[in-house]
Amino acid sequence: MSVGLSRVAVQLPRGIEAVDDVLVRSGCRPMERRMFAKVYGLRDSPTLAADERMEDLLVEAGRAALDGGPAALILYGHTLLMAEVDLCGEFPDRLRSRLGLSGSRFYGLSHINCASVLRAVELARSFLGRPGADPDERVLVLGGDQGSASDRGRFITGSTVAGDSAIGLLVHGPGAAARPRYRYLAGASGRDTRFHRNMRMPAEEFALFNRICSEQAVETLDRAARAAGLAMDRLDHVMLHLSNQVFARSFSRQSGIPKDRIHLDLLAERGHNFGTDALMALQHADRTGRLRPGDRCALVAIGLGAYFQAVIVEVAEDR
């Protein structure tokens, strides 16, 4: 079945916080703070303003993706547990109502951390391919977390600082009226159970995870590329999990994919934003005119735990 993806809708908060300020509050020493700035390439992190709520970002991203149309299913991928009162309780019903989708089913996807949003794309594809599915059905995929709710979840030891953002996109089958911006080619998932302690890992396990996560991400992407009938060197663009520059350099070296194909434009100004990184990079590349019809784009996500997800899409002809 030919599955298409719409353009990605990105919603950012009005606030911006310096990564260094988060590191200071987290008790990092000057040497580690310099490492984050000079070596990791992290500068700013999008942060909700005092009068903003994460729910509002998700609603705006969802409305932009829907563009007035329906969706049979909503999948919300997130890393953090619902930290604020306004994101608990009746959150699914309230979100469906605000999106004009009160009759649609809603499921949250979590506990695979930053791999959750790209995994939601895979689950949307499975839903659209189920027996008896209408060919014109659409699935709304939402993603985003409020990193600023707690520095404990925002600062990831020896790796990155996470911010607040939301994305929305539609996944639809072959009968959709709107022409898809991207054609789904293949995907692959992976897990390394050595890192099941997640944020409770001791320092030596964090160090090991940071050393080998690019190796695991490359292996997952290689399986996705082969499923699409491609070698990794045939990929035109790679949109990575934006933890830091060191990870990107290691990924490039281990995969053989040239650095100029790996999109890091947003790293300094947005840094890491949980499961939305790769899709925000895709949206940015499209918006700035870097994508051409027929280009193959690889989206890669890594979640502590450790979980890996890769999705490969092909850019379709624009209208």
Rank of each mutant, 00 (worst) to 15 (best):
D136K: 07
L109N: 07
D134H: 12
V141H: 02
G132T: 10
L140R: 06
E137F: 03
V117S: 11
C114P: 10
S110I: 14
P135N: 15
H111T: 15
S116H: 08
G132Y: 03
L123S: 03
L123G: 00
I112C: 05
G129V: 05
R119N: 13
A133M: 15
L123M: 09
P135K: 14
A115Q: 05
A115V: 04
G108W: 06
R119E: 05
R119H: 14
S116D: 09
A124N: 03
V139I: 12
R125H: 11
L109W: 01
D136P: 10
V139Q: 01
R138K: 09
D136R: 11
P131D: 10
P135Y: 09
S126P: 06
E122D: 15
G129Y: 07
V139M: 05
L123Y: 01
P131I: 05
A124K: 01
E122A: 15
S110Y: 14
R138W: 06
L142I: 04
L142F: 07
P135R: 12
F127Y: 14
V139P: 00
E137Y: 09
A133G: 14
H111G: 13
R125T: 10
F127C: 06
D136Q: 13
I112G: 02
R138F: 08
A115E: 00
V139W: 01
H111R: 12
R130S: 05
V141L: 00
S110Q: 15
N113Q: 11
D136C: 13
R130Y: 02
A120G: 07
I112S: 08
G108L: 04
L123Q: 02
F127A: 06
E137W: 03
L142R: 03
V117E: 04
L128C: 02
G132Q: 11
F127L: 05
L123V: 06
V121L: 08
A115H: 00
L128G: 02
L142E: 10
V121A: 04
A133C: 15
A115K: 02
G132V: 06
V121F: 02
L118S: 13
S110A: 13
D136H: 13
R119K: 15
L142M: 11
V141A: 06
P135S: 15
D134A: 15
R138H: 07
A120V: 09
L142D: 09
G129S: 11
I112Y: 08
A124F: 00
A124V: 02
G132S: 09
